[in-house]
């Protein structure tokens, strides 16, 4: 993994990143963070049920990869899915209202936090079983290959899912059939409370692709520019018909696995240190300020705007009616 670039060198290296792009990434990552903070609050108020898995800390991964994607590309992920939905342009109101189990939610209250979909934005879930979304990703990629277009599918999973057998069944098929799928391992270091070091002796997770002939690399998942660059490389590989590619995103989640996490498996200091030294949003903030691309006031204005968006989403999620019980019996079949 490359060490984090200092703001100065990143500004130089990132010559192809415009001010507008940087502001866009800042805005998108901030939206995810503020949305998730609000979701955490609503959970605390009893408005959201179940286990709510927040994406705080990992924002650069989805925002960077969305920056490498084009219209038509698909994405599928696990239960820690709010960030992916916001990054691909789904409506925060619809996502939040699904969290509160309302009629206005993306799944009209039938899916919840872990199960939302948008054909319009090519988002295919939101899945609750660790690793089960990975074969789905291969199927989506197969569908595109069969239809003869050049779309690519991003199949996201975590370091925990990397120990599920079906991931390797999928690696094998994806390489065998040259499917245009980017396997994105969001290595946030912990499978619930079990650190990677306690679950495998593999020193890298992307390296397991070697056994199947799939190239890959480890990426600083806290650096949105590094993520974007790696994403562009992976996507180019897939679009050129070379089959799958693996990106292992070294990232970190600040919050617990879910809202019920006892937080006994790592120290406060560990979390605090990463927040202070590697935070993805702070990184872009520094690039914007130090590069003279934005003033504190500009960023404050963005913060305010995002706060309003999230606040609207929260209001909507409270006001949207609860689903009628008659809806229980609809949508069982198409």
């Amino acid at each position: 993994m490359a060490t984090r670039k200092t703001p100065e060198t990143a500004a130089v290296d990132g010559a192809n990143v415009s001010k507008d792009d940087l502001l866009k990434y800042y805005r998108e990552m901030l939206l995810i963070r503020r949305f998730e903070e609000k979701a955490g609050q609503l959970y605390g108020m009893g408005l959201i049920g179940g286990f709510c898995h927040l994406y705080i800390g990992q924002e650069a991964v989805v925002v960077g990869l969305e920056a490498a994607a084009k219209e038509g590309d698909k994405r599928v992920t696990s239960y820690r899915d709010h960030g992916h939905m916001l990054a691909c342009g789904m409506d925060p109101k619809g996502v939040m209202a699904e969290l509160t189990g309302r009629e206005g939610g993306y799944s009209r209250g039938k899916g919840g936090s872990m199960h939302m979909f948008s054909k319009e934005k090519h988002f295919y879930g939101g899945h609750g079983i660790v690793g089960a979304q990975v074969p789905i990703g291969a199927g989506l990629a197969f569908s595109d290959k069969y239809k003869g277009n050049d779309n690519v599918t991003f199949a996201y999973f975590g370091d925990g899912a990397a120990n599920q057998g079906q991931v390797y069944e999928t690696y094998n098929m994806a390489e065998l059939w040259s499917l245009p799928v980017v396997f994105v391992i969001e290595n946030n270091q912990y499978a619930m409370g079990t650190s990677v070091k306690r679950s495998t002796k593999s020193t890298t997770l992307f390296g397991r692709g070697v056994a199947f002939g799939i190239p890959g690399e480890q990426v600083d998942g806290m650096d949105v520019l590094a993520v974007k660059a790696a994403g562009e490389k992976a996507v180019a590989h897939c679009r050129a018909g070379n089959g799958p590619y693996i990106l292992e995103m070294m990232t970190y989640r600040y919050r617990g696995h879910s809202m019920s996490d006892p937080a006994k498996y790592r120290t406060r200091e560990e979390v605090q240190k990463i927040r202070e030294e590697r935070d993805a949003i702070e990184h872009v903030r520094e690039l914007l300020i130090s590069g003279g691309h934005a003033t504190e006031d500009d960023l404050k204005a963005i913060d305010k705007e995002i706060k309003a968006t999230v606040s609207d989403a929260a209001e909507f999620s409270k006001e949207s009616p609860e689903p009628a019980l008659s809806e229980l019996w609809t949508d069982i079949y198409a």
Binding site: Y124, P135, I136, L140, Y146, E169, N172, M173
Partner: peptide
């Protein structure tokens, strides 16, 4: 291409079929 022998990976290819079906296949 349309009649595909698979590896012995039932979870993998049935899961892949779900993905393809969700995309209109």
């Amino acid at each position: 291409e349309r009649v595909r022998d698979t590896p012995i990976s039932e979870t993998g290819f049935i899961g892949a079929a779900v993905g393809a079906a969700q995309d209109g296949m």
